[in-house]
Design a binder for these strands. Sequence first.
DNA 1: GCAAAAGTGTTGACGATACACCCATGA
DNA 2: TCATGGGTGTATCGTCAACACTTTTGC
Lengths: 240, 240
Amino acid sequence: MIKDYDPGAFPPFAVTVDLAVFTVREGRLHVLLVERGEDPYKGAWALPGGFVRPKESAGQAARRELAEETSLSEETVAGLHLEQLRTYSDPDRDPRMRVVSVAYTALVPDLPEPRGGGDAAHARWTPLASARGLAFDHERILADAHHRIGAKLEYTCLATTFCPPEFTLGELQQVYETVWGVELDRPNFRRKVLTTPGFVEAVEGPPRRTGGRGKPAALYRAGAASALHPPLLRPEGRHT
Amino acid sequence: MIKDYDPGAFPPFAVTVDLAVFTVREGRLHVLLVERGEDPYKGAWALPGGFVRPKESAGQAARRELAEETSLSEETVAGLHLEQLRTYSDPDRDPRMRVVSVAYTALVPDLPEPRGGGDAAHARWTPLASARGLAFDHERILADAHHRIGAKLEYTCLATTFCPPEFTLGELQQVYETVWGVELDRPNFRRKVLTTPGFVEAVEGPPRRTGGRGKPAALYRAGAASALHPPLLRPEGRHT
DNA sequence: GCAAAAGTGTTGACGATACACCCATGA
DNA sequence: TCATGGGTGTATCGTCAACACTTTTGC
């Protein structure tokens, strides 16, 4: 920033955003993928994303692209948790030209199937384990994103962003188990969540909801807290 | 990445790196600043940094700029801990043109005064509390970086990167106390560090070193571990 | 001897784990 | 009445904060 300033002579870069959007479906972690309609990597699956426009920040671009791809309303998207992951800038990461991409992670509840809206010919939720052979360095981005959300669940409350507005503790526990790939002890998980102030709050009128058979569960909303103190550590204590 | 591809018609961006380089001096946290020699913000202090070159990644650019500004050898810089913080992309963050900056954080032991090498007219270590009125959005970057390293000390071993190759536990504790701005209980800190496998390893031949008066302390080296399990949480448990 | 810094020991509070057990519902 | 998932209780263990105490140096 201090040096080499020569307007018009700076190296030309394109700046894009890429999105790793996760959801939990049928007990498995899914990620939103789109099918590329143009070369390079035509026909391959990739993370949704696109160019940052001249008058918007990368974060605004990410939110815009997310709305386009998921067919959600702008208002809904505005409320979603969207977090900058990191920036990928390898000189050879795009064969066309020099492209620097700012990656974002989003966690969403189980949404309707994406319309393939916007520009992507096809878009779909894919189980994370099946997301192989992605375009560019998107597989790497996806792995980084998975690692990050796993770590974030330990010391933040954002597991609730995977859930609908009202949810049961069983559903919340499923989020942890799905992202971490482990089983948790239900009584202990319950205690931990309920004794953390602001993590969840009980829904007043004791309506209950069935998840199939078994006893109906009490409903909760996301609370006001954003961090967990003390953290909810994975079993085995390994951050992988 | 999926859409809008029109070679030559993508919005033109400049990409830079900015560095928040921290060290501990005289019990206070210092950051490396350079004085700008050109408009805008001529004469103001700023974080070191510069343009990413066409054939290098942002990480490589950060390491190169760090070497230039600190007058360290390339080999020394190659071994330093350098971590991507986040990317700043506000459309108005640079009055000249559209500049997206990838910020990095580095933690270094107490180094010799920087030569003001490379392109910066002046460079110096500044106490963090005195780093005000910086150019661009560098004050924000600095605040984010400080927050990040504080959090990282909790669950990683990188406090040792603030220390010289051989250090005492008192020096290591000073790093924590300086970055967090709190006082720690020495016996408990000691136990925590020594019982974490791979955090530090004792230097064999029991040479000892004096920090002034008082009993000489045993020397330690950084160990092989990189993460702390369980973490070393700040007092009050608040992540601020 | 005294101050200062290193190092050791002990105790009690708290949280997490690993269970056993009861409750409400659908089939 | 049995399987299934929700919910409660409790004993044990490990970690950590707090603080008393000893050791080794410079002055």
